[in-house]
Design a protein around this nucleic acid. Structure first.
Lengths: 246, 246
DNA sequence: CTAAACTGTGTCTTACGGACACTGTGTATC
DNA sequence: GATACACAGTGTCCGTAAGACACAGTTTAG
């Protein structure tokens, strides 16, 4: 949209590379306060409640005054994410990649549960801030003593993140604006009254796009990862390795 | 937003439960034509190009005339999805749940590659149309001769779908509006110049939020699923089962 | 043949993101 | 300490979006 919608500007803002102002009146707030306020609004009323107007009003400012802090809505959301993600857990107390990665997954899940709008915004080609970047870095550390390649480690981390995201996105509607949860029962009715065409789905008595059990998916993924690691270890240094689980 | 944003109305539209009109002038188009046109626009110019104005103009109609066909943008997108998903593959020729599910995953991936905007819209609490519903139904059929419970089967299907989605969402930005791909190199530079704080990520020389190898994740998932299935079989009827793979 | 039903149109409202010019204020420099 | 510059906050304007609503024209049922 605007000329300010530039990833370089976002990077400078998130990574603290904005030149500090000296002259002129003191700003009434700083970017962190703006971000925190916006996060509070999004937590309470959802992401669709976030507008320049709304956030500015919350701070007692005019809409245009907000543009002094962030160059546009893209930057606003970027700092919101950075403010909301929090810090990843310390995994050094746990032993074994599996325990570490499992703990990581649960902590990530908790963070996203606290801010239901986060999954829908932390998607796609974008610039992450330093706090957010700590998360994948931490996840990678869980896998550092496995025989996986760098690429595989990254893939595994992304895989876990995406799974956790998937278990949360059901709550955060994408383009639908009706009250959450109202579509599921209707979908269920449709399946039941069309049970002849969709016998398996109707048999599950659950709507497909809705919730997904997080633990089943997570354990299956870790099992699969364990398989890959075990096989890699076996073939690489020709030595049987006791699997961490069972 | 409007009173028309009601999942029941969407369900009626998608499942062909709208009472057929008899009196009055013939509509210039039908809902399918509207959907196809909108899909074409979205394929060519992205989802953000979709507006009532734009789609109406494409059909040679006024914006308000479009509201005669769909009650709002939510309905428009719903019919777009139903028009774009296509039909799931026939898995009956393949033997074994793993081969079937793998084929399913690849076909799903292909469908989403054809319409890059689909992943971002097929999320959350919503009503699916009959064509789209065929997809999870087909995936469930791949697992029908496994000893998994209904719930586990559904979880497994959702897990695979979400993984495939995850490998595609990198291309479809969520809230960022800049040209795709421009953030990744900047993220890479940030990681490299902060290699002391993010040694593992910097070592991978790849940006975390970007692409993820689909096959690694898929095979890991299938391995994990295989583990669950094998264990279930072993414990349920006390009989060793030859794993389908290796 | 008439009246009801329906399609398509034009106009209005509200809300959004953003541009831009302007006012006032505080700090650094001379 | 005076002054000029830099910057925070404001008000106004614009383009675009979704949607409400009333109206004109058309076609089919009775």
């Amino acid at each position: 949209m605007s000329a300010h919608e530039d990833p370089k500007a976002v990077a400078e803002l998130l990574w603290g590379l904005r030149k500090p102002r000296t002259r002129g009146p003191r700003p009434a707030f700083d970017v962190d306060q703006v971000a925190d306020t916006a996060v509070k609004v999004a937590d309470a009323e959802g992401l669709e409640a976030i507008s320049m107007q709304r956030v500015a009003a919350e701070l007692g400012l005019t809409k245009m005054a907000l543009y002094r802090y962030v160059n546009g809505k893209t930057e606003l959301i970027a700092v919101m994410v950075e403010a909301a993600v929090g810090t990843p857990p310390d995994l050094s107390a746990l032993t074994g990649w599996r325990a570490k990665l499992e703990e990581y997954a649960h902590r990530l899940s908790a963070a996203w549960r606290r801010h239901p709008w986060l999954p829908s915004v932390t998607v796609g080609d974008r610039v992450m801030g330093p706090r957010e970047t700590r998360w994948p870095e931490t996840a990678l550390s869980a896998l550092s003593d496995t025989p996986l390649t760098d690429r595989e480690r990254l893939d595994a981390v992304m895989m876990v993140s995406h799974l956790i995201r998937a278990t949360h996105t059901a709550a955060t509607p994408g383009t639908q604006t009706w009250t959450p949860g109202s579509a599921a029962p209707i979908m269920r009715d449709l399946l039941l009254s069309n049970a002849d065409r969709f016998p398996l789905l109707a048999g599950t008595h659950a709507t497909p796009s809705a919730t997904m059990t997080q633990e089943f998916g997570l354990q299956a993924m870790l099992d699969g990862l364990e398989h890959a690691i075990t096989r890699r270890t076996r073939s690489s240094d020709d030595e049987r390795v006791i699997a961490t689980r069972q």
